[in-house]
Amino acid sequence: MKITLTDETKKMKKICTESNILQNWFVNTSPAIFYKTVELFCKVNGHLNTSTTRKWERDHFILTSKNKSIDSTKYRERLTVNGFALQIMNFQYSDLNKEYFCVYGFNKRHSNLTINMANFEMHPVNETVTRTCHVTAGILKVLIQFSLVYPIPRCKALYNEKFLAKSIKIRPHHDGVFYSTNVTIEESIGSMCLKTLKISCTVGSTDFVIMDFSTCSDHTKNCKNFGRRKVFGAKHALEGFQHEW
């Protein structure tokens, strides 16, 4: 007995097939760093057909459509063999917690972009970090304050080639989706000369040197001079820190 598909069955089969053409988009940048370029990627099953309508939407606005952008300084499209991406330049907090749509032909996928969707990082810059240091009665006291950072920094201190694992304390507090964090050190050094003090912090996967001090004179002068030292990143020079404090 020969079985034939009815027009309705064929139509339903076509709809089911087309609905599987497009996968949901994901954050394709890791780490995704605020004030840098962050990319969202929409993958198609099979090869991308460049003649098929494709676009990215947000807040009822079309951000990109077939290589055209609503603002080329903010949004760009990137094509691959199996999908298309939205590149968001100078990624800001205002770009977060928004619903983004990727459209391919008659297929549409959407998700709300939250800070938990990827390895987002908000790096410390000069305007968001303060620090103080002083030595009183043989006690070294350091306070570093990050007013805006994500995720919680992991810090370590090296004093005269000795790690201060027990005396360093990190106290984070939620500030919206980000954190404000205090890093404190209280260490008895007696009359020992303050030869070197290096404090480095890791934010997400990125390392920063917050203090790097290597002058030996009297304790009070040493700590006051902290305020005029340059700060550099462990992996690269920090853009926000490349000047005299």
Rank of each mutant, 00 (worst) to 15 (best):
T29A: 10
T6W: 04
H236I: 01
H110E: 14
T114R: 12
I15M: 10
C201E: 03
K36V: 01
D7I: 05
R154A: 05
F120H: 09
F178I: 02
N24W: 02
F26C: 05
L86E: 06
N112C: 15
S72N: 12
K14H: 10
H173A: 10
T220F: 06
N107F: 02
V183I: 14
W245M: 04
F120L: 10
N45D: 15
D175C: 11
C102K: 11
E57H: 11
Y75N: 05
M12T: 14
N225W: 12
H173V: 13
I144D: 01
M122S: 08
N45V: 13
L164R: 03
N222I: 05
W56L: 10
R78F: 11
K13T: 06
H219I: 02
T80Q: 12
G83Q: 09
I139Q: 13
F226I: 00
L197A: 07
P172V: 04
A157V: 02
Q87G: 03
Y150Q: 03
M1V: 02
K11F: 12
R171M: 05
I115L: 13
V81D: 10
V135R: 02
K166G: 00
T80I: 06
T73W: 06
K10E: 15
C102P: 05
F34C: 01
S214Q: 11
F91R: 04
L79F: 08
R154D: 07
S19D: 11
T196R: 08
K68Y: 10
K224D: 07
V203T: 12
K166E: 07
C42S: 15
I189S: 12
R229G: 05
H243I: 00
V125L: 01
S147F: 04
E99R: 13
N182A: 14
S147T: 14
G233C: 00
Y104D: 03
I168L: 15
I62Y: 09
D7L: 12
L197Q: 05
T130M: 05
L48T: 09
N24F: 01
I210K: 00
N112H: 11
H219Q: 11
V135M: 07
V103W: 10
K36L: 02
S51C: 06
E77N: 13
F232G: 01
R54M: 13
A85M: 14
T29G: 12
K108P: 03
K98F: 02
Y100E: 12
G190Y: 10
A165C: 02
C155T: 04
N45S: 13
E121I: 14
F34A: 03
I33N: 01
T37Q: 09
Y93W: 01
F26E: 09
R54H: 14
K43W: 06
S51L: 15
D212G: 08
I3A: 10
I152N: 06
S30H: 11
I210S: 01
C16Q: 15
S94L: 12
K162S: 11
L197R: 05
G204Q: 04
L158G: 07
L48H: 09
T136R: 13
N126Y: 00
V209M: 02
V38L: 04
S167V: 00
V209R: 01
I168H: 08
